[in-house]
């Protein structure tokens, strides 16, 4: 298969990349890992005149912890995320998401920024970004802005990123002690999957009485974008964490939060049912982690 013809740009800095973005605007696309974009170009699903590769910009490749925040550069690969001790320890659901994506070859190229910009409702790291309440860092030549990840996705394949902007990374507050998180994805086979349903849950408890101080649930593949399970979260607010309340939250996620459709990967009915199962399971696992089990 042939790629269409395009001009290739390989900026060495964010500033250089932003200058190119400003020049070419909608005629340019950012190339990160290329595991989606190059496939879409080969299949003639998108067109492009200028490709701006950003994978060699050092500042986009860093994972850092500073002042209670973890920042993750946009071009950190899934393999690097999965291998990072810091991510594994502090943001375990993000590690799980990164580890679940595609297969070992894809994970060596696919980036977290690319996963976000691709904005697939099934994206493997997106549920984790949602439950950790990540901020998306967007820059243009004027400066930077941060957008809560829950506002970042606009529709399938669409985000709120502007033509002159570059997603440079994510900022996530380090979850406090007494918190836990879990991610489960469900597909037809055990590797190289495109998810039928995927769910991440985060929970923070008061160790004294097991009361839920904070809970966030993210549902994938059941709406035009990955979404937060708002109703399910309401069910949990202030309650004592146990199987009964998790079941109620799962029911709320299944009944009220998710709006799945039928497609060739699965029916709405199955997806809805699985939202219930996975919400309950991720909450239970998150609680066990919060309790240090």
């Amino acid at each position: 298969m042939l790629l269409p013809r395009f001009d290739f740009h390989d900026p060495a800095s964010v500033q250089e990349a932003l200058d190119l973005k400003k020049t070419y605007r909608e005629n340019a696309r950012i190339l990160a890992g290329g595991t989606d974009l190059l496939v879409h170009l080969k299949k003639d699903l998108v067109s492009v005149e200028h490709l701006i590769s950003v994978t060699k910009i050092d500042e986009l490749l860093k994972i850092e912890e500073k002042g209670g925040d973890i920042t993750i550069g946009a071009c950190v690969t899934m393999a690097s995320l999965a291998a990072s001790g810091l991510i594994g320890e502090k943001l375990p659901a993000l590690k799980q998401g990164a580890q679940s994506l595609g297969n070992h070859l894809i994970r060596n190229k696919a980036t977290i920024g690319g996963n976000a910009c691709n904005a697939s409702p099934a994206g493997d790291t997106l549920c984790a970004l949602l439950i950790y309440d990540a901020a998306v860092i967007l820059q243009n030549s004027e400066g930077a802005r941060e957008v809560p990840v829950s506002d970042f996705f606009v529709g399938p394949g669409k985000s709120c990123i502007n033509d002159d902007e570059l997603l440079t990374g994510f900022r996530i507050a380090v979850p406090p002690a007494g918190s836990g998180a879990d991610y489960i994805q469900l597909g037809k086979r055990k590797s190289s999957e495109i998810n039928v349903v995927n769910v991440a849950s985060y929970i923070e408890i008061d160790p004294a009485n097991q009361n839920i101080l904070n809970a966030r649930i993210a549902l994938g593949s059941v709406a035009p974008t990955p979404i937060r399970g708002a109703k399910a979260e309401q069910v949990l607010a202030g309650k004592t964490a146990d199987d009964t309340v998790f079941f109620e939250a799962a029911e709320a996620a299944r009944r009220d939060d998710c709006k799945p459709i039928d497609d060739f990967r699965g029916t709405a009915g199955y997806r809805q049912a699985m939202i219930g199962v996975l919400t309950r399971r991720t909450l239970a696992a998150a609680l066990a982690q919060a309790q240090g089990k």
Binding site: N103, K188, R189, K190, S191, S192, I194, F264, R265
Partner: peptide, 16 residues
């Protein structure tokens, strides 16, 4: 054909 590639047409992987 809706699933005309080896991502969506699912033969077994080493994990299966």
């Amino acid at each position: 054909v809706l699933n005309n590639d080896l991502a969506e047409y699912k033969i077994v992987t080493s994990m299966d």
